[in-house]
Nucleic acid binder design. Structure first.
Lengths: 210, 210
DNA sequence: ACCTGAACACCGTTCAAGT
DNA sequence: ACCTGAACACCGTTCAAGT
């Protein structure tokens, strides 16, 4: 039996994901990663082509666990769409470094086609017109990415208070009014995940899902 | 009259925006930018605090022109929301480097509060419940960002054909069906901007906008 | 065959000095 | 007062050599 290689691509991918989670993409360096794995910097290049490929390996690691989390045949189409969308959001919220590193490619790996297909299945089962479903799938995914990485959501009352005091009421009346209504109706705690859930329901209504 | 400074913050911001558009954030360097402006690298630091501030200046430049593009009082609330959302999308599509560089901060500048306020105004005018409007505003903005920077949209028939041939029909039936319906119904040309317009209408339906 | 140190061509930013 | 070159502490990746 040959001596196993000291490190595998999987080891590298796991270390990269941990570094992305801990310090973010900007601070992720081949040198530091190699040091952490106890190998020379150049050894990494035997397992990944370059830094891009390193991040792709980390992405695949995250989405590899996704099919198992998918709802089984027993649920309604609407429940399936909600489950898939929020699972994607949760994965992205857990690993914000992925979006920082990859942008669009984070959801363009072969691994994520199963997700897209599950959304299509759920929407069709919920009675959504096929063309409307096809247009609506990117809406759900783009919103999940935008919400995870970029939301302008106000999540706590202090931020809202600060905003209220900073904005002249005569000019920003509508904004202050809707923010007040959100605080009164939904929170605290009012998280971006909660907002996502509420909005997915509205999106499904708009798409005509039963 | 004192000799005017050779370069202003505005010059630096314009040059930074051009560089972001041309070569992207990764290739944007203080050294190159300074050379292009015909000054020493360190001179830039008299106009911007650091590279982050440089990008913020470029962002403000882009959104500075936005209030002028806002619809006036004559339109319906629904039309206002559509106009504001698509204008934001167009700005982001024109300058993809902004999202690459900033992520969430791209829409968190004081300049963009006017946008948020206009969306609130439009939604309220369209009869949307205030709390629903407050939750729905980040949906519109997050979707615009996700769509501009990260969409998984299939925009041309070749990509669709490639996908169809790559995916086994028995496993990816729903995905292939909805994609076919989109091609048949909307395109070509079916762009991400077109998809955005369609989906904003559906979002407004879901939010209960008249 | 497998691994990797040294080197190349870059970065952003600090500091101290030049005019 | 205003500007900036040199230097510091980093990068990702190529190349050639080491074991």
């Amino acid at each position: 039996m040959a001596r196993p290689a000291r490190i595998t691509r999987d080891d590298v991918a796991h270390a990269a994901l941990r570094a992305l989670d801990d310090v973010g993409y900007d601070q992720l360096s081949m040198r530091t990663l190699a040091k952490e794995l106890g190998v020379g910097t150049m050894t990494l290049y035997h397992h990944v082509a370059d830094k891009d490929d390193l991040v792709d390996a980390a992405i695949d690691l995250v989405f590899a666990g996704l099919p198992a989390a998918m709802p089984d045949a027993g649920v309604t189409g609407r429940a399936r769409v909600i489950a898939v969308a929020t699972t994607v959001l949760d994965l992205l919220l857990e690993h914000p470094g992925l979006i920082q590193a990859r942008g669009q490619r984070a959801l363009r790996r072969p691994t994520t086609l199963a997700v897209t297909n599950d959304l299509a299945r759920g929407l069709l089962e919920a009675g959504v017109d096929p063309a409307t479903a096809g247009v609506g799938i990117p809406l759900l995914l783009d919103y999940a990415i935008g919400c995870a990485g970029f939301t302008t959501q106000i999540e706590d009352e202090e931020t809202f208070e600060a905003l209220r005091q900073a904005l002249p009421a005569d000019e920003f009346g509508p904004l202050l009014a809707v923010n007040q209504a959100v605080i009164d109706t939904y929170g605290p705690p009012y998280t971006r995940r909660r907002a996502f859930e509420i909005n997915v329901e509205r999106i499904l209504d708009g798409l005509g899902a039963r």
